[in-house]
Design a protein around this nucleic acid. Structure first.
Length: 819
RNA sequence: GCCUGGGUGGUGGAACUGGUAGACACAGCGGACUUAAAAUCCGUUGGGGUUUGGCCCCGUGCCGGUUCAAUUCCGGCCCUAGGCACCA
């Protein structure tokens, strides 16, 4: 190859354009779903095509998935790397209303824009697999799954108080409310009683929690999900009312504190309230219940709110101590958790303590930290208990149970309650069923029909999809009904069972519906006889690597796991966890805060690509820090990567033709060392240090006049996942006529060559570095000692000292401990 | 309050299983090339001291412990980001 006609100048603009076109024309990412090669399914959390474009913060995840896909491709896997669109949902609809553009039109425009931007990154997806959740061909199957869930008893309709956003004019899922505010628009959420479609996700609470042990996910996400599910172990205990009329059942995690229960509280919404309240207290109680009902979520959740409540006039009997204790109502007890009623142990629960202080209720000590100095555990003073002691310890003042430790005590108490038939072990969850209906237009219509004769009827499979009618009026009504309710052609239909007149459900599904199973569709996006093929599920799922932001920890990732488990139980899927490995990319910050349009600190990738090229931005996104840790974007830093690419290009061009050149052995060995460490790093997702290794090697290489074509070729292949355009260009300059991603093989290394034959050994005296010596690798203690003796400086330092101990770690270090 | 991360130079960040702290970069400083600038290249850069081509001391949020040796392990705190939060 003659150097003369190839410029040393790195013309990234031409190179970017040329190869992007080449990849697209030659479909290098076209996956053969039926190939016998080992599969690798690499998936990005598909984006919601919003109005704001992608900024460099968004780029990160897409770059990581592209790097992994290209890497796996070169390592010989059959890689599926698809992309699609989570296109139904509220924000698009809200924007559509604001801009007066129909959501279907708006969504299409935005998808086109996102697709264009993803191509800018140089990310290559198999676009033949693309689909959007708002495609009728797709949502037909979302509805199909709903019908299956319905038939399995996992979808049900219920009148219940739900979170309603007055601005978005729709009910919200528990997961969509943060701090009493709508996650989308920030409005204060109201409580409303509405008929709601619910999914019985609580039935899967245990498995959703337990199976987290089976997946390779970041600990943080697992912990978020476990917290959200909120499983706690305890007991259910029946308290008889003093008049013997009925029982109040409570849930407690601390049955060992039962003897300290000096009162009870039931939630104001509890159905027993009206039944147990004594006539003279009725009016006061009624007033309290009303005021509690009118409180907004925010008021009720306000921090450090003073506890209030009302005595019902009723008394209950503590089942073990036999004491008569008052029953109160207060809104610090939540109706929807546990049984909606609690036994109150002010001595050992902070909330109960606060309440008892306010109302002068007895506070009793029934647990102590230690029994040291306690003469009689059944008679311990409660004096000086000025805050609740909530830790575990030993039971006191608890009759025959006094002296038992918390764990044993819990067990014994439950045993006794069980024997008496008034209690048992019990588990409770914070997780609530999933409110699955939205009163909005832009979503999948819920495929249910109401018939006066037959009641609720699921739309038969052959009648799916229930198409979302294309209408002019899609504004929310605010009546609690979806805009679809106003469309007679949509609402009025025939009952599939009796053919009589019937009405369609007009609520739509939440945005999370489509994303709960989309990963099952990519291997077979065009299949029209089923949502997914059994054979392809067995072959391609679960997803090997799932990349996306941590913000979906308790939403999408929980819902998707639930869908998969339900489909597994119904026999539709051969696996019950969708994502084997999850990777959350770190968020990019700038000027101390998260990069976002609203904060005005976004960096537009287009400008960077224009100035430095796509490869440079891709590498810088990874060089900036560990991929899973948040890191700070500094505009200055990118020139380092840019310089590296230019130098690499120049050296590569100048040496690409050195086919038969024998390079000096130290260079050869350095290359093997480089291939070894760099390969280890990229396989371990240590992209930032992988890049450092490349820079280090290139720096070293610069000390030589020339190097072999083999060295250039190895670097090209190794850098190609991150800098695909330039490496593809160099690969072709080296005379290869097939894409580097199809013909390049990840370089191997020779362990023996990669090993250093000489090591530098630090010599310490009393743990302080006093010099280093060079020794042959594997040198034994005696020969190292000889080398040290030859070193004047160290010898001088040892002079006149008494060596108490000599520590020798082969090839690592020596340390003289001297007096 | 609870759960999960994180805390290392002026900055982003390295450091394998406990074994030379600060790799690789950015910024800074000095120099080469240039009429000049840009680009490029070379040198230097944790802090302090010093008898200054050398050497010494200090230093990984704080305090203590284990060890010949601790950014790394153990105990106790502080700060910070995110999540949950009257969940009994």
């Amino acid at each position: 190859m003659s150097k003369e006609n190839i410029s040393e100048e790195f013309n990234f603009k031409a190179i970017d354009k040329k190869w992007r076109q080449y990849w697209e024309d030659n479909k290098i990412y076209k996956v053969d779903v039926n190939s016998a090669k080992e599969k690798y399914y690499c998936l990005d959390m598909f984006p919601y095509p919003s109005g704001a474009g992608l900024h460099v913060g968004h780029w990160r995840g897409y770059v990581i998935s592209d790097v992994c896909s290209r890497l796996k491709l070169m390592q010989g896997y059959n890689v599926m790397h698809p992309m699609g669109w989570d296109s139904f949902g509220l924000p698009a609809e809200n924007d559509a209303i604001k801009l007066e553009i129909h959501p279907s039109v708006l969504t299409k425009e935005r998808i086109d824009n996102f697709r264009r931007q993803l191509k800018e990154i140089g990310a290559v997806y198999d676009w033949d697999l693309e689909f959007a959740t708002s495609d009728a061909d797709y949502y037909k199957w979302t509805q199909w799954i709903f019908v299956k869930l319905y038939k399995a008893g996992l979808a049900y309709r219920k009148m219940m108080p739900i979170n309603f956003c007055p601005s978005c004019k729709t009910g919200l899922a528990n997961e969509e409310v943060t701090g009493g505010e709508c996650e989308r628009c920030g409005s204060a959420v109201e409580k409303r009683d509405m008929y709601q479609w619910m999914l019985r996700i609580t039935k899967y609470a245990d498995r959703l929690a337990d199976d987290l042990d089976k997946v390779d996910w970041p600990e943080s996400v697992k912990s978020l999900q476990r917290n959200w599910i909120g499983r706690s172990y305890g007991a259910r205990i029946d308290f008889k009312l003093a008049d013997g009329s009925r029982n109040i059942t409570v849930f407690t995690t601390r049955p060992d504190t039962l003897f300290g229960a000096t009162y009870m509280v039931v939630a104001p919404e509890h159905q027993l309230v009206s039944k147990i309240t004594s006539p003279e207290k009725m009016e006061e109680v009624k007033k309290y219940v009303e005021s509690a009902a009118n409180k907004s979520e925010i008021d009720r959740m306000a921090e450090n709110r003073k506890k209030d409540g009302v005595f019902t006039g009723a008394y209950a009997i503590n089942p073990l101590s036999g004491e008569k204790i008052p029953v109160w109502i207060s809104d610090y007890v939540l109706a929807h958790y546990g049984t909606g009623a609690i036994m109150c142990v002010p001595g050992h629960d902070t909330r109960d303590f606060e309440f008892a202080k306010t109302f002068g209720i007895e506070i009793r000590r029934v647990i102590v930290k230690s029994l040291d100095g306690v003469a009689d555990a059944s008679k311990v003073s409660s004096d000086g208990l000025d805050e609740a002691f909530t830790e575990t310890g030993f039971m006191v003042n608890s009759g025959a149970y006094s002296g038992l430790d918390t764990e044993t005590g819990k067990m014994k108490v439950i045993e006794e309650l069980k024997r008496l038939g008034i209690g048992e072990q019990s588990i409770n969850y914070k997780l609530r069923d999933w409110i699955f209906a939205r009163q909005r237009y832009w979503g999948e219509p819920i495929p249910i029909i109401y018939c006066d004769k037959c009641g609720e009827v699921a739309v038969p499979e052959e009648d799916l999809p229930v198409r979302l009618p294309h209408v002019e009026k899609y504004k929310p009504t605010g009546t609690g009904q979806s805009p679809l309710a106003a469309i007679e052609e949509f609402v009025n239909c025939k009952c599939p069972k009796c053919s009589g007149p019937a009405r369609r459900e007009t609520d739509t599904m939440p945005q999370w519906a489509g994303s709960s199973w989309y990963f099952l569709r990519y291997p077979n996006p065009k299949l029209d006889s089923a949502p997914f093929s059994e054979e392809l599920m067995k072959k391609w799922l679960p997803v090997d690597l799932y990349i996306g932001g941590i913000e979906h920890a308790t939403l999408h990732l929980l819902y998707a796991r639930f869908f998969v488990k339900a489909l597994y139980d119904m026999g539709h899927l051969p696996f019950d966890e969708p994502f084997t490995k999850l990777f959350n990319q770190g968020i990019i910050y700038r000027n101390g805060s998260k990069m976002s349009k609203s904060r005005g600190n976004v960096v537009n990738p287009d400008e960077i690509v224009e100035k430095y090229g796509s490869d440079c931005l891709r590498m810088f996104e990874l060089f900036i820090g560990p991929p899973d840790i948040m890191c700070e974007w500094k505009d200055d830093g990118i020139v380092g990567v840019s310089k590296f690419l230019k130098r690499f290009y120049k050296i590569a061009v100048n040496n690409a033709g050195n086919k038969n050149y024998q390079e000096p052995s130290e260079l050869l060995r350095a290359r093997h060392r480089f291939v070894k460490t760099a390969s280890e790093r990229i396989n371990a997702f240590q992209f930032n240090t992988f890049i450092s290794a490349c820079m280090e090697f290139l720096n070293y290489l610069s000390n030589f006049d020339r190097c072999s074509a083999e060295t250039i070729s190895a670097m090209c292949v190794m850098l190609s996942p991150m800098a695909p355009h330039v490496c593809e260009e160099l690969w072709s300059l080296m005379g290869n006529d097939k894409s580097i991603f199809l013909s390049g093989k990840w370089p191997s290394f020779d362990e023996a060559l990669a090993a250093l034959d000489e090591v530098s050994i630090p010599v310490q005296i009393n743990g302080k570095l006093r010099g280093t010596i060079n020794a042959p690798k594997g040198a034994d203690e005696e020969s190292v000692k000889k080398l040290i003796a030859a070193n004047e400086f160290i010898a001088k330092n040892l002079e006149g000292k008494q060596v108490v101990k000599f520590v020798f770690v082969k090839d690592k270090i020596v340390n003289y401990v001297v007096k």
